[in-house]
């Protein structure tokens, strides 16, 4: 379904960044460039959920932005149903639904107008919007505020609207960058249930998160990115088995070679 192979990505640092970071020790930075990704690989099949883990600044968001064609990799490949994201970005974008860290909604438009605008960019017709879209609205619990302006909605409401926007064209692959960050328990619960529903409908879902309980609840596969590299990429089962007591936190620390420090802290 979606296959990511040996992604690398380098950013040129501007003058200010060079000065700001001159005192920090970051092995990925040298000679005015920052190696955001050096070797990232993972894959996710139809009807699977992949949890993308990693510390802050590890490269998760950069990897997800490459998947969505917002960034181009320096090398490596991303294929969605054999469509190369770099060579055929417009075709690949039709197959993917992407939720970035910010909701990025248009505040002056209503929730419905936001969703329908993105639907039309995907060529979705009025008939579909009148029938199928209503199901998505109900599943996400946004029906009662669809006609309110987005700027008057809470963070949780906006996040659900932006998820509806990402799936309105029925993508083969759904990419979510920290979808539950900053949300209350109820909103988080609805979004996690929706991811589960998408999985059951056969969509491949990739989501980055810092919440291991969400990974435990939803993920079939786990990829850990550390310092721009895939430090682990396998099934959830294999990830659990990295620690003797099958504790996901300990497995995560194990992958990052921080297990001793973690054990000492508890």
């Amino acid at each position: 379904m979606i296959c990511v192979e040996n992604l690398t990505k380098t950013f040129t640092l501007n003058t200010r960044s060079k000065k700001d970071r001159s005192h920090k020790v970051d092995p990925r930075q040298h000679d005015g460039v920052f190696n955001a990704l050096t070797d990232v690989s993972f894959h996710c099949e139809r009807g699977e959920v992949l949890g993308l883990l990693g510390p802050n600044g590890a490269g998760k968001t950069t990897a997800l932005r490459i998947l969505s064609s917002a960034l181009k990799p320096d090398s490596g490949a991303v294929r969605i149903n054999e469509v190369d994201v770099v060579r055929s970005p417009l075709l690949a974008k039709q197959k993917i639904g992407f939720l970035s860290g910010k909701t990025g909604l248009y505040g002056r438009l209503t929730a419905r107008e936001n969703i329908e605008f993105f639907a039309r960019l995907h060529g979705v017709n009025d008939e579909y919007l009148a029938t199928e879209a209503e199901t998505i609205y109900r599943n996400l619990g946004i029906v009662h505020y669809l006609d309110r302006r987005v700027e008057h909605l809470s963070t949780g409401m906006q996040q659900k609207v932006s998820i509806a926007r990402a799936v309105i064209h029925k993508p083969d692959v759904l990419v979510l960058d920290e979808p539950t960050t900053g949300l209350d328990i109820m909103a988080t619960e609805i979004i996690l249930e929706f991811i589960q529903l998408m999985k059951e409908q056969g969509t491949a879902v990739i989501f980055s998160t810092h919440h291991l309980d969400e990974v435990a609840m939803l993920a079939d596969r786990v990829t850990v990115i550390d310092q721009g590299k895939s430090a682990f990429s396998d099934s959830l089962q294999a990830f659990r088995e990295l620690s003797a007591d099958r504790d996901l936190r300990r497995s995560f620390m194990h992958v990052l070679n921080l297990e001793k420090a973690y054990v000492a802290s508890i």
Partner: peptide, 14 residues
């Protein structure tokens, strides 16, 4: 600034 440019650029629109 509002972050709505990136979702727009991620759509299949030239």
């Amino acid at each position: 600034e509002r972050g709505s440019l990136m979702p727009l650029l991620s759509q299949p629109v030239p």
